[in-house]
Design a protein around this nucleic acid. Structure first.
Length: 786
DNA sequence: TAATGGAACCTTTTT
DNA sequence: GGTTCCATTA
């Protein structure tokens, strides 16, 4: 940890402009340095500002040195943001705040120091969900349990849940354990034992192990209590029981803990977050000072009023009254569409309008606009549309870079080079690329390894020496074993730079070759990703450091300078703000999500409502809510009802827009919305009638069946316009008949040209109109170098 | 052992 | 509509 210690004196010598920048409530929260403090900070009330000012104040007054402040956030993004802001306020880089980070990253640091106390070595690996599932699958199979009745995913969920509540296998209450036939607990115990054997931990363990260490070793606990003189917690409403226990342990001595949170923005209940933690703060820490931040600096009055109107329907809340001194601005805009594709098309046009400047508004940058969806599958419609019209966009929270198959494969090779005994990594790549080592060969290796009490890598070596593998597998395995030895030797000897080494590994293992020969549409993209992975390596000193970093930071933050519209989930949007926000897909069953309501009833619905609140409050100036009457679900067209949350929007703060296009349909939301002038009322009325019928049926067993029956009425898919002008003289560099490649749709053949657009018949994706600059000729695509 | 085709699942949300 | 997991075939 390189540390450029911040000199507290240097800070104190300057005046304290950061205090003058605060409103009275914020200032009160910042200046109450000692003892427990709870900041109830509504959306857009300057929560991060208060939090960072508080840190600066601690430093400036000399109450604490940078390394004596423990500051916890939930996401790496939030941690980074805070570091940047503190740095800006102090006018120097914040290298000296080693304990500002996520719960998980801080726990890794602690656990590395004390690993041996929980029977781990300090170089333990951190498993991700994928590893976790494969491990559980093996255990389930070994127990001869029907994996249909006990899918690994379910077991992983159960275990996760228990870990969130800080239950180790022997601590799972009988009531819980019996609900799962006692098998759950047994498998949980086996899983933990296996992790220990592998010298590995999962995400939940990071917290759990540290809690155990702190509980069982008073001296260590005392040391950290002395060490962390001040504790700050962001997004306190999202803490689960384990995190809560962790905090209580560390804050137990001096009680200098200050938590910031907003019960109205608690949207992680499904992940074990306990709103109860925030509601209980004053009981847990008697004498706590509670400060409310209620002045909103982000949104216009109309947007704020709409959000407040929605959240008011929730029963379980502490209650806050947000206000703003800002202008009224535009009302929240509401519009219904015929189907999801129409919705995407319309939003695309809106974005282009805002970009140009429309309705007397000055132009917005694409960076200023975001589309926030409930579920990630909604993103596809927008991606497709934006690719077609050539609108630059960025997707946040999609399938993440480091979770992609090729990246994980490559990482497995790196892991083996660093520690050849990493069995999970070995298993992953024994037969990738194909080496003729099938199930039988792998079993032989496993058996050999187990009976000799060695790792798979060593087991494989024995197999080669004893000629236990037949045919071509023998030579291939020998080569792999030797390869691993060689790469490991390089790591140890530090002979080459780690970037060169990485390239060499991917090359010699045949992994790059595998994708170069692969002719599927994904292959070029995967090669690109591998290239990016190697590039990312340059930012680290060695492979070990890289692997360490990646285990915790599973995000793909490729910093590109081009302006782009952001597409992401509502969950991912928490803490962010945008001048222009689109909230599509406000339909019952989608938002609020049916599953959430089925699983958690009223509690689930309230969480969904908070999600709606989070969504609206992301908007600074313009907020547009939309819904579609028809939507494709699992490839089947379904008719949809507008979300019940739309009824809850306060009418006086909403403007209903008339959808474009033809709407003769007698039913479907678009028809309703287009009908008369007090459209909202009309839409709401028929909506409410439906609701009245639904209210009593809702919890009945027949509900789901009825729901699926009534809604699976098929609706004809709107005919797409098909007047394609074929212009052979277009200035495009493509001609009809060219083979081309598209990043998303794969390979295809050019069927026609139309201005800067091409009509392409894709091998897999069908016929599409695509902007020419999004495709390359197929021969070029084959040549993407590594 | 690898490749193919079909059935069955599926979509919340994430450190 | 897509993926993943299987059983069957080459």
């Amino acid at each position: 940890m390189s540390s450029t210690p911040l000199s507290a004196r240097a800070v104190a010598a300057r005046p304290a402009p950061y205090l003058d920048d605060l409103n009275p409530a914020q200032r009160e929260a910042v200046e109450a340095l000692d003892g427990p403090v709870l900041m109830l900070a509504g959306a857009g009330t300057g929560k991060t500002k208060a939090l960072t000012s508080r840190i600066v104040h601690l430093l400036a007054t000399g109450k604490a040195r940078p390394n004596e402040i423990l500051s916890v956030t939930f996401t790496n993004k939030a941690a980074r943001e805070m570091k940047t802001r503190i740095g800006r306020m102090l006018g120097e880089a914040v290298e000296g705040m080693p304990w500002l980070g996520t719960f998980h990253s801080i726990c890794v640091k602690l656990l590395r120091r004390h690993a041996e106390l929980v029977e781990l070595k300090s170089n333990f690996t951190i498993l991700d969900t994928d590893d976790q599932l494969r491990l559980l699958k093996q255990l389930i199979a070994a127990e001869n349990i029907d994996d249909k009745r006990w899918p690994a995913r379910m077991l992983a969920g159960i275990i996760d849940n228990w870990k969130n509540r800080a239950w180790r296998p022997d601590q799972v209450p009988a009531s819980e354990a019996s609900a799962y036939d006692r098998r759950g607990v047994r498998l949980y115990a086996q899983y933990q034992a296996r992790l220990r054997e592998l010298n590995a931990v999962d995400f939940g363990d990071l917290l759990l192990h540290v809690i155990q260490i702190l509980q069982e070793h008073e001296d260590i606990l005392a040391q950290y209590r002395r060490w962390f003189r001040y504790i700050l917690v962001d997004e306190y409403q999202d803490t689960n029981v384990a995190q809560y226990l962790w905090l209580r342990l560390l804050a137990g001595g001096h009680r200098n803990i200050s938590c910031v949170g907003d019960d109205d923005q608690s949207i992680y209940g499904w992940r074990g977050a306990e709103v109860g933690n925030i509601l209980r703060f004053e009981t847990d820490f008697p004498g706590a000072k509670v400060v409310r931040l209620e002045q909103n600096y982000r949104s216009t009055a109309h947007i704020l009023a709409a959000a407040s109107g929605i959240i008011a329907a929730n029963k379980q809340r502490l209650g806050k009254t947000l206000f703003t001194d800002g202008e009224d601005g535009e009302k929240v805009r509401l519009i219904g569409h015929w189907d999801g594709e129409e919705e995407a098309r319309w939003i695309g046009e809106q974005i282009e309008d805002y970009q140009r400047g429309t309705r007397g508004l000055s132009p917005f940058s694409l960076d200023d606009m975001a589309i926030l969806v409930r579920a990630s599958h909604q993103m596809r419609a927008f991606e497709d549309r934006f690719l077609t019209i050539g609108l630059p966009y960025r997707v946040i929270g999609g399938p993440r870079f480091y979770e992609r198959m090729e990246i994980r494969d490559a990482m497995a090779y790196f892991r083996l080079a660093v520690s050849p005994d990493d069995d999970l990594a070995f298993e992953r790549i024994v037969n990738t690329p194909k080496r003729g080592l099938g199930d039988k060969a792998v079993q032989t290796i496993q058996r050999t390894a187990r009976s000799n009490g060695v790792s798979l890598h060593e087991g494989a070596r024995l197999c080669v020496e004893g000629r236990l593998i037949s045919g071509k597998g023998h030579a291939a395995l020998r080569e792999l074993v030797q390869g691993i030895d060689r790469w490991h030797g390089q790591v140890v000897a530090e002979a080459d730079t780690h970037v060169e080494l990485a390239e060499m590994i991917l090359d010699e293992s045949g992994y790059t070759g595998m994708w170069q020969q692969d002719k599927t549409p994904e292959a070029p993209g995967r090669l690109e990703n591998l290239k990016e992975l190697v590039k990312a390596l340059e930012n680290f000193d060695n492979l070990q450091g890289f692997l360490e970093h990646i285990a915790l930071i599973m995000e793909n933050d490729s910093e590109d300078s081009e302006e782009k519209v952001t597409v992401m989930t509502l969950h991912a949007a928490k803490g962010l703000e945008f001048p222009v926000v689109f909230l599509p897909g406000w339909e019952d069953g989608l938002f609020p999500s049916q599953r959430s309501m089925d699983e958690s009833g009223m509690k689930g619905l309230e969480e969904e409502r908070r999600l709606a609140y989070v969504g609206i409050t992301r908007a600074e100036r313009i907020c547009t809510i939309s819904f579609a009457g028809n939507r494709r679900v699992y490839g089947q067209w379904q008719s949809q009802l507008p979300s019940r949350f739309i009824d809850e929007l306060p009418e006086s703060h909403v403007e209903v827009l008339t959808p474009p296009g033809l709407y003769g349909g007698g039913y479907g939301a678009a028809g309703m919305a287009a009908s008369a002038s007090p459209i909202l009322a009309a839409a709401s009325e028929s909506h409410l009638q439906q609701r009245a019928v639904r209210a009593d049926v809702y919890n009945s067993p027949g509900w789901k069946r009825m729901q699926s029956k009534s809604s699976s009425r098929r609706v004809a898919q709107p005919q797409e316009a098909r007047n394609i002008t074929i212009d052979l003289e277009a200035s495009s560099s493509f001609t009809v008949g060219d083979r081309v490649f598209h990043q998303k749709f794969g390979y295809g053949e050019v069927m026609g040209l139309e201005g800067d657009k091409l009509v392409i018949e894709f091998d897999k994706a069908g016929t599409k109109n695509v902007v020419a600059r999004f495709v390359v000729s197929a021969t070029q695509a084959d040549e993407i170098p590594f």
